[in-house]
């Protein structure tokens, strides 16, 4: 479904992502692991069209490498960034409405999608008229996932959904993610919490210093002895 070939991303003179190639098949969850600064988020942002990149990104056989973020979204790829980035001045419901911006002309569908998300995330229904900037970290994480789902994507790019959240909340967030997966959604997950990611994903890639250092079946990667070494950069 998603195929990335020899992706390179530069920040000025620094090459943050070097020749990254990866694949995600329809309906599967793949995870991208690695230490801080290994290039995971940069890879995600380049796939989402938010960063200029060289190489080739194809989605369902179509080249999407040089598309803008809004056009990538229209192709069916939505991203949940690690910094969450709720529209803090807007209410929870308004954030969801904007998540469905591409369906805005079909008011009935947009309304149905909003109600569906509020059913899926009950805490958001409770807080639907609250300013999203006042939500807790866990609630904001649920909101940005629900907002991304409003565009009805076929592939969800999830960047560090557990970042800065208490273990109990992380468990809760992964329950939601698995619920979304059960609907057939394809997910590419970036995580520092390797155990949590490998437990849930089928395929895994480990990045180090901007390159793919290891790839394979998630269970195999979890069992491999050099995962810690890759994280520590040794």
């Amino acid at each position: 479904m998603l195929k990335v070939d020899n992706l390179n991303v530069r920040y000025g003179a620094v090459t943050a992502v070097k020749d990254v190639s990866l694949e995600v098949s329809e309906g599967e969850m793949a995870c991208l692991l690695g230490a801080n600064g290994s290039g995971k988020t940069t890879t995600m942002l380049a796939i989402a069209g938010a960063l200029k990149a060289s190489g080739r990104v194809t989605f369902n056989g179509e080249d999407i490498t040089s598309l803008s973020p809004e056009r990538v979204l229209r192709k069916g790829i939505a991203m949940v960034p690690e910094t969450r980035e709720v529209f803090s001045d807007l209410t929870v419901r308004e954030n969801l409405i904007l998540g469905g911006f591409i369906h805005r002309r079909n008011r009935k569908k947009s309304h149905q999608n909003t109600e569906q998300m509020l059913d899926l995330f009950p805490v958001l229904r409770e807080r639907q008229n609250q300013q999203s900037g006042t939500l807790s970290g866990g609630e904001q994480q649920q909101l940005v996932i629900a907002r991304a789902m409003m565009s009805q994507p076929r592939l969800l790019l999830l960047d560090e959904p557990s970042l800065g959240l208490a273990p109990a909340i992380v468990q809760h967030i992964y329950e939601f993610i698995n619920k979304l997966r059960s609907t057939g959604l394809t997910i590419l997950l970036v995580e520092q919490n390797a155990n949590m990611a490998l437990k849930n994903a089928e395929r895994a890639y480990v990045m180090a210093l901007g390159k793919i250092a290891k790839k394979g079946d998630a269970a195999e990667i979890a069992a491999s002895s050099d995962l810690e070494a890759l994280y520590l950069g040794s």
């Binding site: 938010a50 973020p69 809004e70 979204l73 980035e85 529209f87 001045d89 904007l98 998540g99």
Partner: peptide, 16 residues
């Protein structure tokens, strides 16, 4: 309003 606060994110939810 969303674009004024988070321009990149606004684009990532499909706002041109």
């Amino acid at each position: 309003r969303a674009a004024a606060s988070q321009f990149r994110m606004a684009r990532m939810v499909g706002i041109p």
